[in-house]
């Protein structure tokens, strides 16, 4: 296990400070509101209130950002969302 200092140095090599990615979940006509809320709670560990707020954002605005972090982590989150049958994409934060 590395020390905090080493981890920070490795992190600085692996990803630039501004290289933050996000996972976006998109609206679709198929998925049920209660199912999407349940998936957000089960996978991201959101509270019921947060999960419902994100689900409503997807439903009303067509998309919601559900997580952010390094690209590799976002690939894991997008894969999980596709596993649940939700349409998710990843992109650089701020794009």
């Amino acid at each position: 296990m590395s020390t905090q200092e080493e981890r920070q140095r490795e992190g600085a090599v692996a990803t630039r400070v501004d290289d933050v990615w996000v996972t976006v979940v998109w609206n679709d006509p198929v998925n049920l509101m209660s199912y999407v809320t349940y998936v957000f709670r089960a996978y991201f560990g959101f509270s019921k209130e947060v999960a419902e707020a994100r689900m409503l954002e997807v439903h009303r605005d067509g998309r919601s950002i559900v997580s952010s972090g390094p690209r590799e982590k976002m690939e894991v989150d997008v894969q999980a969302m596709h596993g649940y049958g939700l349409h998710a994409t990843l992109q650089r934060s701020g794009e």
Binding site: V78, H82, G85, H87, A88, T89, L90, E95
Partner: peptide, 8 residues
């Protein structure tokens, strides 16, 4: 079932 993970 297996959507594109980026449209851009």
């Amino acid at each position: 079932l297996l959507p594109h993970a980026s449209t851009e």
